[in-house]
């Protein structure tokens, strides 16, 4: 398990990184935290000719609030998000999610940019940025472009990024009044990728939802912003309505079968998560049990 030989370049600036990517095309790979890329290279699943290491680019680091927007640089490490007061205040969903990502040693190196660019369908951060209605900021040879997180993920390990582009930052709307969040996943061991998970943002007023974004993950080839959530918004949530939403959710899911779970099990767990999420966000425990049968 040794990586095949490769060349290595440490980018000196974003511009320099983009030049290197332009020069080598899809024979190059961006190296960020290396926590997904290096294992794949050691298993010789990937053998890039050259690595473009962006680890030294200070311009890609940092968490800042600009007006109503929270900007998180691509090189922000998982551990930085876990500890950041800005994240805790404005996007606590990310903090809750990151606590489920791997283990401390990996969180000390892995980055949000790497995680989103890697686009593992069982990964925690992609559904968060979808649920939070984030914007992905991308730089390429033609300059900067912005794309909605909901449009960014294209499939298993596939995104809207092309090989000559860099993900530079994520922009998140800061949490407004009445915003509440829910994050839960089912994994056999702490730190494992989820069997099924849910990252949700809601606005709750007078006992009901005025907004609800449900980002399911590990239920398809990319994070799913469930349309079924619409049934629960501006409505009186009853066990019957919740059951109706669960049925609608089942139609949206396209789960894969793997060693951990059949498709049927994933559908079942997604429905359980939906009930538990709604019950938790509305602080109505009876909703969780009510639809249990």
């Amino acid at each position: 398990m040794k990586a095949a030989a490769f060349a290595y370049a440490r980018a000196t600036s974003v511009v320099n990184a983009l030049e290197l990517l332009a020069a080598h095309g899809d024979r190059a790979k961006v190296l960020s935290g290396g926590q997904s890329l290096m294992p794949a290279m050691n298993l010789r699943l990937l053998s890039p000719d050259i690595l473009v290491d962006i680890g030294g680019l200070a311009e890609l680091r940092g968490i800042a609030v600009r007006g109503n927007v929270l900007v998180v640089g691509a090189l922000t490490r998982h551990v930085d998000m876990l500890r950041s007061p800005e994240i805790a205040l404005h996007a606590p969903l990310l903090r809750d999610a990151v606590a489920h990502v791997a283990h401390p040693a990996i969180r000390n190196r892995g980055t949000i940019g790497g995680s989103l660019a890697h686009a593992d369908p069982a990964s925690e951060l992609p559904p968060c940025v979808v649920a939070l209605d984030a914007t992905v900021v991308i730089r390429g040879p033609a300059g900067e472009r912005r794309i909605a997180a909901t449009e960014f993920f294209k499939g298993i390990y596939e995104t809207a990024l092309s090989p000559d582009e860099l993900l530079v930052a994520i922009e998140l709307p800061v949490a407004g009044q009445g915003s509440t969040f829910f994050f839960q996943e089912y994994a056999r061991r702490h730190g494992d990728y989820a069997i099924v998970g849910l990252a949700a943002r809601a606005v709750v007023a007078v006992g009901g939802f005025t907004d609800l974004r449900l980002g399911f993950f590990a239920v398809g080839d990319r994070p799913l912003l469930a349309a079924a959530a619409g049934k629960l918004v501006n409505a009186s949530v009853t066990p019957a309505l919740l059951a109706e939403a669960a049925t609608a959710l089942a139609d949206e899911l396209d789960p894969q079968e793997d060693q951990q779970a059949t498709a049927a099990m994933r559908r079942h767990l997604a429905a359980v998560l939906l009930r538990r999420c709604v019950a938790a966000l509305l602080a109505r425990p009876e909703l969780e049990a009510g639809a249990a049968t």
């Binding site: 089912y186 056999r188 069997i195 951990q260 779970a261 059949t262 099990m265 079942h268």
Partner: peptide, 13 residues
């Protein structure tokens, strides 16, 4: 005793 085994035994899936 995986979740899959237990849910199957419980008739949940």
């Amino acid at each position: 005793l995986t979740p899959q085994v237990i849910l199957t035994a419980l008739g949940r899936i």
